[in-house]
């Protein structure tokens, strides 16, 4: 567990991690704000509008990439690194 000035904690890496964190938080804020619409979309799919299926699948993919990239760097930033 060592802090590496030119990798995980460099200003560039820090800015990138923060950016990912902000995007991730924004996505979750949107999820909260539009949660009723998402529930309605599921109801519409059940009623036969099968095309809307791309919405939950798309959301899953986007959230996973952004939040996955953020959490991967998050613990590193706090100094929690795998032992070599």
């Amino acid at each position: 567990m060592h802090a590496n000035k030119n990798t995980a904690r460099s200003p560039g890496a820090l800015a990138y991690t923060l950016l990912l964190g902000i995007i991730s938080a924004t996505l979750y804020l949107l999820l909260y704000l539009y949660s009723d619409i998402l529930t309605n979309i599921a109801t519409m799919i059940r009623q036969g509008h099968k095309g809307y299926v791309v919405i939950p699948i798309g959301i899953a993919l986007i959230f996973s990439f952004v939040h996955g990239a953020f959490t991967g760097r998050f613990w590193d930033l706090l100094g929690l690194k795998a032992k070599k």
């Binding site: 998402l38 109801t43 799919i45 059940r46 939950p56 959301i59 899953a60």
Partner: peptide, 16 residues
């Protein structure tokens, strides 16, 4: 999802 069974809110909170 085609059966409308995926509650994407639950999925994404768990994912978080």
């Amino acid at each position: 999802a085609m059966e409308g069974a995926v509650d994407i809110r639950l999925s994404m909170i768990i994912l978080a």
